[in-house]
Design a protein around this nucleic acid. Structure first.
Lengths: 188, 188
DNA sequence: TGCATTTTTTGCCAAATGGCAAATCTTTTC
DNA sequence: GAAAAGATTTGCCATTTGGCAAAAAATGCA
């Protein structure tokens, strides 16, 4: 819970009373490895802050190939923003790569918070914008690189993540086959 | 100017008086092909709505290779969001692919508008979030695909853009060499 | 129009990556 | 602790893409 509060406070000030309001809204849920947090076709009803574990966001392209968009590890928010904020069916899956502990808000929770905490909406907007921007900046450099540089960059940027994620998921994230990734790993 | 107003109204209601306020703030600037709208190392001071022409956002990776992040064509906003909203030095260049006509707001303009138009900030936030989301969704599928599919998808998604952009820029956007793109073009 | 410049296409070959199936290793389950 | 299920590595070869330089085409400009 502390992690969540710290995270929020990086984006805006919250006094003790406001922190209590937030804490009271949060629900804790546990996912087992492989469980879904949200699914394509359904409307995203909640936002999760990952307090333990790793989530994976993926979808199927028009050739039915599974594409991993990104991973969400501890102390980060997970949500299909488009689905959640516009209440339209999602086009992606969010699943637990391993057992996870999530702190969850519903849309209603957030709405109530925005009515009781001045500046809450601005804070949430900042978080959304920042994390979207992070995604763009993380993905877009990958296109110019070959597979081994992509892997090297990933290692550099997320040193602890690589060992915690099955190779097949990482390969799908990097846009290469798992055999290729395995070979790349061997030669480095 | 109509284009801008239409664009804004897709994200929130504006009455005639508010529309006037917006129109009064806008400055029109022209860029010649190759001119910069903003540059790496400098702080982004303004936002542009592209009313004619195409802009290109790019940066140099650690191997000094020029990587095109994306193109911004007519009826879309261009801004280095991170630099603009946090007033930190930008890490990317925005340049005119061809002669351009831009409708420009400064940070001060936007601030004043947020003080005179109720809901302006929310509207701007929606626009930011939507366009960031678009970027993520546009870039992330590319990783799973081979070069020709990436080109094919680009054509499908931006049918009119391909002929208006030099091949070298498009190649850099697709993450392939220009020779490869040329060959791909021939065989399709 | 004609020259200079820029952009695009090609050829040739090397290097990277993919596809597929079998062989190993690991982990889980009973 | 064995068997089963799952994950990773490897071999073999086909295909894709890159690198580099030269040729061809398109564009700009005097």
């Amino acid at each position: 819970m502390e992690g969540l509060i710290n995270y929020l406070c990086r984006f805006g000030q919250l006094n003790d009373q406001q922190i209590e309001l937030v804490k009271n809204k949060v629900k804790i849920i546990h996912l087992n490895k492989g469980d879904s947090f949200s699914e394509a076709g359904k409307i995203a009803r909640q936002v999760a802050f990952v307090s333990a574990g790793i989530l994976r966001v993926f979808y199927y392209n028009n050739k039915d190939k599974e594409i991993t968009r990104y991973f969400i590890d501890e102390q980060n928010f997970a949500v299909d923003l488009h689905s959640f904020s516009d209440q339209v069916p999602s086009s992606e899956y969010i699943q637990a790569v391993m057992d996870c502990r999530l702190l969850v808000f519903t849309a209603a929770d957030l709405k109530e918070l925005s009515q009781t905490i001045v500046g809450w909406e601005t804070l949430i907007n900042k978080i959304s914008a920042t994390s979207l921007l992070e995604k763009v900046n993380r993905i877009s450099p990958m296109l110019g690189e070959d597979a081994s540089s992509r892997y090297a960059n990933f290692l550099e940027r997320f040193p602890t993540l690589a060992n915690r994620i099955p190779l097949s998921f990482l390969a799908s994230y990097l846009g290469i086959t798992q055999s290729s990734l395995s070979r790349i790993r061997r030669n480095s």
